[in-house]
Design a protein around this nucleic acid. Sequence first.
DNA 1: GATACTGTATGGATCGTTTCAAAGCGCGTC
DNA 2: GACGCGCTTTGAAACGATCCATACAGTATC
Lengths: 345, 345
Amino acid sequence: MAGVRIRDVAQHAGVSVGTVSNVLNRPGDVSPDSVERVNQAIEQLGYVRNDAARKLRAGVSTTVGFVVLDGQNPFFTDVVRGAEDEASSHNLAILYGNTDEDVARERMYLDLFEEQQVRGVLISPYGDIHPRLERLRARGIPAVLVDRFSGDGRFSSVSVDSVAGGRMAVEHLIDSGRRRIAFVGGPFEMQQVRDRLAGARVAAENAVVPVEIEVIATDATTVEAGVVAGARILARPARDRPDALFAANDLVALGLLQALVVDARMLVPDEIAIIGFDDIPFAAAAAVPISSMRQPGRMIGRTALRILLEETADPELIPRQTVFLPELVVRRSTASAAGGAARGR
Amino acid sequence: MAGVRIRDVAQHAGVSVGTVSNVLNRPGDVSPDSVERVNQAIEQLGYVRNDAARKLRAGVSTTVGFVVLDGQNPFFTDVVRGAEDEASSHNLAILYGNTDEDVARERMYLDLFEEQQVRGVLISPYGDIHPRLERLRARGIPAVLVDRFSGDGRFSSVSVDSVAGGRMAVEHLIDSGRRRIAFVGGPFEMQQVRDRLAGARVAAENAVVPVEIEVIATDATTVEAGVVAGARILARPARDRPDALFAANDLVALGLLQALVVDARMLVPDEIAIIGFDDIPFAAAAAVPISSMRQPGRMIGRTALRILLEETADPELIPRQTVFLPELVVRRSTASAAGGAARGR
DNA sequence: GATACTGTATGGATCGTTTCAAAGCGCGTC
DNA sequence: GACGCGCTTTGAAACGATCCATACAGTATC
């Protein structure tokens, strides 16, 4: 429609097209005088660069793709926010896709991003996408895994040590006097879920007292799945229930809490303790404030994008794994079983 | 790098470049035989269309921009999800930007989207961006306002009737026996905030009993802002406190709840009732389950994207305002002050 | 057998930018 | 005044797809 092209700017400023392009891309190489005139022309004509033409010729994209496992999970919105901050400071835009733990959607977005020739891809993977990512890399599009350790080290990744996190969470439960612990989460296709459980088992094995770990599988890591799992626990006779729940993430923990406390009036932490993972902002405002393993979501996003940009700059870079350690945040949901004052008793 | 071009596909399939393009865009116009051969070649060579070249020549973009006020707010992630669903069914990708109530960021994203020549823009506006949007429209990029009524009708919009919502919320508070009501929210630059307050005032004026509406201003609609406001309320002598709080949204309501109940052990709803807006999933799992005005977020997103696509198809279309009515969801936080029997739910 | 018509296929022009080799310019040196 | 040296500027050739006017083959019609 409007169609102000670089040629019009050149004409208006009395210079050649090449010069305008240089002003746009390498102002240092152009005389201050020309820069001034060109900028005025741009201003006056309301010129906006055509990114498609730029991308076609220069081969450089100004977008980065981000494929997220669960965009509804506040933890991931936090990660996205971090990536976005970093991106906008480099004048990049984010192409956003939410897979919702669906392999087909995941593939679709990667296809889309390839057509778009994004500068790079951040992805919290669900299915096995290594071959797909290899192909992208072969086309000059690097990828960084987010919230997932790259087992074989073929890609860079930014994540949190979920095994350590699981261990710390369960150690905390054991310290506060719990012995019959249930891990609530799923699906086990998700590496994070497997790792957190593995960590829980390590803590149980290392404990000086005998500790049971039971697994209550859910089909997703959502509030609804937590509610369903909670109902299953309630259906059991009181004697058969665990005395502590380690939820795969805070959404599940909130669902459990809703089923057990809000709906069924169980006493948390007295009858049963609950700990989650992620420390989303809502954990603190829950029916009973939920203890959790805090992940630095924003930082993860920032870091991932930064690494991605380094890799675009130098494709020969060796992939590197960045791992943060989660931090235990204790709230009321795991206060000592003994009740009030004494802990050692 | 890889660089399989349409020319290579043509060669491999033994047809001309034009034919391959036709197979890609109008397979109906090509003989089944050619379609077959071309598709095989595409498969074998791993050809992926170069969207930049396509966009440059054809002028059609495969991305839609979405500028969101607060990407951390679950309500908005729900809206985005709706838009995304609709977009992916049309093979469009979403360029995502989060303004965080910052005018500069808002402008930056609109610039970025203009360079990208997106197909259209969805935006939940913060500042006054009408001139900016007019300019986009002049360049053939339509925009649809999300979660904000277009007062002058110059753009299509999809929103919820916030005035009605505010009225319904406060009517409910009055019905349950409250008389000294405080509206907690801000900044008042946000139309949603103003409208919800306006609705509250309407309800108070229409009431058959005298009702006071007090305003407790916050500088954002976040959990933290709610906590701060809660502390201010606590600082007042008990006699001077309102008997009900209408929060501008659920995040603020959760913050209030945290300050008043979790931290200070006030009794909700007995001493003070709380109602929020949006009905985010976390409202139900809160310390005291929070009553709220439900907005159909996902539906809003879907609808907005659909309208946007209709407008790209026919730029002459007259802007239209789609308004949903919010729905009152009553939970424990506003149970009758009288105490009464029906508290169990 | 000439003509018209339909359905496909072709290939060169085109989109708007960046790139890059070459030219132009001003100035100091010999 | 010829030459060389930086610093700027120039203009035409890409980039890879789509568009479109044209060509062509095959069939129907008279």
